[in-house]
């Protein structure tokens, strides 16, 4: 218990740590830490990218291998996003609108990919589609290439971004309730009409939030994609893999130039995320 009562106490400063001599040093310490740990790495990407001037920067980005990496990254993350968006909507609809056995287990299983190391996420597709994998021989016989090709990259990307849309939508739709949708049906709307004119508008911010988190992760995924890609230049290199190759060739300016594109995507993601949070009054979510 508290034993020694203070004799003098200024009114108004009842909350711990509110005194200016506590507050400002703490703010300074926190911001210094963030400056060193977060801002410097981000800033260094752009400084290193322009270290050899605009021309080298532009050449690095217009390089055919870089352009093909951009195309592949956009393709793979586009497919992954679409698939996981459909899944997120279906899972959130089933979980938030109906009650059934095993629902809690299902919610936990959806989060499972977050607990798996990206490298293991890549490995599982090697086990399935590799030459000695479950479907390896069959695929080989039918001349279908999944591993070390675009389908493998797409699958690995889908796996690592699997829960992102669903885990934003499920709690939001659970809290929302079903009255409006039931009213629409009672008034004679078709199920799809109900979905497009009631459900979708209601969940739009939550959906967008999940979509930007999902696409940021999809474009930036490295470990899983690295295992399944085979690193064939101009064919199976995504942007992060292209960064790795350039970096390992000591072509630092080009590596950071390509990395600056990804960093730009990250900064835009953070900005959009913050705007959605402010608009909806929601907190930052644990990803």
């Amino acid at each position: 218990m508290i034993t020694a009562p203070q004799t003098t106490r200024r009114k108004g400063s009842v909350r711990a740590g509110d005194a200016p001599w506590v507050k400002w040093p703490l703010i300074a310490l926190a911001l210094t830490f963030m400056l060193v740990v977060l801002v410097l790495p981000l800033a260094s990407v752009f400084v290193e990218a322009f270290a050899k001037g605009w021309q080298v920067y532009l050449d690095s980005i217009r390089d055919p291998d870089a352009l093909s990496a951009i195309r592949l990254t956009l393709t793979a993350s586009g497919i992954a996003l679409t698939m996981n968006l459909l899944f997120g909507l279906a899972a959130a609809w089933a979980i938030s609108r109906f009650s059934f056995k095993g629902k809690n287990l299902l919610i936990s299983l959806i989060d499972l990919p977050l607990a798996v190391s990206p490298v293991v996420a890549g490995l599982i597709f090697v086990l399935l589609f590799g030459l000695h994998g479950w479907f390896g021989t069959w695929l080989d016989d039918h001349n279908i290439q999944i591993l070390f090709a675009v389908p493998g990259i797409v699958l690995a990307t889908i796996f690592v971004t699997f829960p992102f849309v669903a885990r934003e939508l499920i709690p939001f739709m659970q809290a929302q309730g079903t009255e409006e949708e039931e009213a629409a049906l009672v008034l004679g709307a078709s199920p799809w009409r109900m979905f497009f004119s009631i459900t979708l508008p209601n969940i739009r911010w939550s959906l967008l939030y999940g979509v930007i988190l999902c696409s940021a992760r999809a474009m930036g995924e490295f470990g899983a994609v690295s295992v399944v890609s085979g690193h064939i230049r101009g064919e199976t290199n995504t942007l992060p893999l292209h960064v790795e190759i350039l970096y390992n060739e000591y072509n630092f300016a080009a590596a950071f130039a390509v990395a600056s594109l990804l960093s730009l995507v990250a900064v835009v993601t953070l900005a959009v995320k913050k705007i959605i949070e402010d608009k909806t009054g929601r907190r930052g979510e644990k990803a």
């Binding site: 926190a30 911001l31 963030m34 977060l38 801002v39 790495p41 981000l42 260094s44 990407v45 290193e48 990206p118 988190l213 940021a216 992760r217 474009m219 930036g220 995924e221 490295f222 470990g223 942007l239 992060p240 893999l241 960064v243 790795e244 970096y247 590596a255 950071f256 990395a259 990804l262 960093s263 995507v265 990250a266 900064v267 993601t269 953070l270 900005a271 995320k273 913050k274 930052g284 990803a287």
Partner: peptide, 20 residues
Amino acid sequence: ADALVDLPFALPTAVAGIAL
């Protein structure tokens, strides 16, 4: 500062790796 906290979620790990 609040938005920046999530930078490690948004920045690709390979980019963080070479920057650090």
